[in-house]
């Protein structure tokens, strides 16, 4: 009997020694893995200001950022999209690109080595997933096909739908227009002369094109030339162009282009020479509250003035809509 008791005590002691060890081996069995990503793989309408986050099943202890890559697809090929920094935030890895994502692009997130050290081990698997930043036209949702907006609201909450106002580059347009004719009665008559100055931001701006239009016809056009030297301002460009013999009533269409010859801003202003004046000058300055910013539909619906500003400051066709998955 004594012998049996001794065996029982020994068994309990053995169990008390072995149990913690067994527990540990259970927790060690949960290998490092990814819980989920944001944006999710193959998402289509990812907002351009989205945070790229990868959530693991354990806290992150260290990062080897050389194994973490971000690519942007262009003409069928993935090109390196520089990463500014990679941060850890509990179980989440946060990838911050050097510049904002672009619209209508495909991005690929890639791990190609032991990228992340977790509390439960090193994540050493190859990872590769893509997402896209396609957008829907705000104009289409709001004006052309309102049914599409209703469908969207069936799937997404207003806080998940984001509208992005385009960046604006034109600060000021000024026109000086001299009518045909003499300034004084005893002077010889001469042709009408028009000078147009366009002040822009310096960032991204490569050239400025000006069309003089009437009744949808282009009467005259040309690239404005950049004013250099003492007249140039910091962080701004001034472009100027002259025309002769244009009518006293016309539209001025200013188009700002980047290095890739893509239109990045445009503006149409209306000019009407003043009655009884040989020279009419006109200046219009632009200040934007919403340019370059993204707003959720919830923000727009709850702040009428914000919605109003968005609609008045940007052409609806230039506002882009994207959705955030939860």
């Amino acid at each position: 009997m004594k012998k049996l008791k001794g065996i029982g005590v020994a068994f309990i002691l053995l169990l008390s020694i072995l149990m913690p060890a067994l527990n540990q081996s259970v927790s060690a069995a949960a290998a490092p893995r990814i819980d989920h990503t944001s944006p999710a793989a193959n998402e289509q309408n990812v907002p351009i200001d989205t945070d790229i986050r990868i959530y693991f099943n354990s806290d992150i202890r260290g990062i080897s950022s050389q194994y973490i890559k971000l690519f942007e697809k262009s003409n069928g090929t993935y090109y390196d999209f520089p990463i500014k920094t990679v941060k850890k935030d509990g179980e989440a890895l946060h990838i911050l690109p050097e510049k904002s994502l672009g619209f209508n692009k495909e991005y690929m997130v890639q791990f190609n080595g032991p990228a992340v050290d977790l509390q439960n081990g090193t994540y050493n698997q190859h990872l590769s997933y893509t997402f896209q930043t396609n957008y829907i036209d705000f104009y289409e949702l709001m004006v052309v096909n309102e049914g599409r907006l209703m469908n969207m609201l069936d799937t997404y909450a207003p806080r998940q739908i984001k509208a992005f106002a385009p960046k604006r580059y034109i600060n000021e347009i000024s026109v000086i227009h001299k009518k045909t004719g003499s300034l004084k009665g005893d002077q010889a008559s001469f042709n009408g002369i028009t000078n147009i100055d366009i002040n822009t931001k310096s960032e991204d701006v490569a050239s400025v094109h000006v069309d003089i239009m009437k009744n949808d016809n282009i009467l005259q056009k040309g690239y404005a030339s950049k004013v250099t030297g003492t007249k140039a301002s910091k962080n701004q460009f001034t472009f100027d162009i002259g025309f002769s013999n244009i009518p006293d009533f016309y539209d001025v269409r200013v188009t700002v282009l980047n290095n890739a010859q893509q239109t990045i801003d445009s503006k149409i202003i209306k000019f009407a020479a003043e009655d009884g004046k040989a020279i009419t000058s006109f200046k219009e300055s632009y200040k934007y509250k919403t340019a370059g910013n993204g707003y959720t539909f919830h923000e727009l619906l709850s702040k009428e003035s914000l919605f109003s500003d968005l609609l008045s400051e940007s052409l609806m066709q230039d506002i882009k809509v994207q959705v955030e998955d939860r």
Partner: peptide, 13 residues
Amino acid sequence: PSSNSKYSTSSKT
């Protein structure tokens, strides 16, 4: 006629 122009520009609003 415009008061300053040598030749008239129609200017009646």
